[in-house]
Computed example of a mutant assay.
Amino acid sequence: MTDSPILLTPGPLTTHPATRQAMLRDWGSRDKAFIALTAELRTRLLAVANGQATHAAIPLQGSGTFIVEAAISTLVRKTDRLLVLINGAYGERILAIAQRHGLDAVALRAPEDQAIDPARVDATLAADPAITHVALVHCETTTGLLNPLESIAGVVAHHGKPLILDAMSSFGALPLDLAATPVCAVLASSNKCLEGVPGLGFALIAHDALAAAKGVSPSMSFDLHAQHQGFEANGQWRFTPPVQVVAALVEALRALESEGGPTARLARYQDNLRTLAEGMTRLGFPLYLDPAIQAPIIATFRPSPARPFEFEAFYDGLAERGFLIYPGKLTREDSFRIGCIGDLHRADFERLLAAVEQVLAREPA
Rank of each mutant, 00 (worst) to 15 (best):
A361R: 15
F231S: 04
V48T: 00
Q236S: 14
A70G: 02
I94R: 03
G201D: 10
V76L: 02
Y326R: 14
F314Y: 01
A71Y: 07
V48R: 00
A173F: 07
L360Y: 09
N191Q: 13
F66C: 13
A203P: 13
L283G: 09
Y315S: 12
P198Y: 04
F231E: 07
V243N: 06
D104A: 13
L210A: 06
L330M: 11
A57I: 03
D208F: 06
A361C: 07
I325A: 04
K161F: 13
T331Y: 06
L176T: 08
L204S: 10
S63Q: 13
A96T: 09
A354E: 14
F66M: 14
L330S: 04
S170D: 13
S169L: 07
A135W: 00
E350V: 12
T14F: 00
L41V: 02
I58P: 08
T2I: 06
L276T: 02
D26A: 12
D3H: 13
T79L: 02
A354K: 14
P305G: 01
P129W: 00
S169Y: 12
G196W: 07
E92Q: 15
A319H: 13
G199Y: 05
I131G: 01
E251C: 15
L145N: 02
P198I: 05
P218E: 03
T79M: 03
E257D: 12
A248P: 10
I131D: 03
G62N: 02
N272Y: 04
T142C: 11
K192E: 10
T263Y: 05
T2S: 15
G201H: 11
I72P: 13
L256N: 14
E363T: 10
R120G: 07
R351M: 07
L82R: 00
V243D: 12
V243W: 05
L187F: 06
G196L: 04
V84A: 12
V356N: 09
T2E: 14
A267C: 08
A247G: 10
D290M: 10
R238K: 09
S63R: 14
L163R: 03
D104V: 06
P12K: 00
S63K: 10
L46D: 02
L8C: 07
V245C: 08
G64N: 01
L224N: 06
H345D: 11
H158M: 08
F202T: 09
M168Q: 14
V137I: 02
V48P: 01
L83T: 05
V356Q: 07
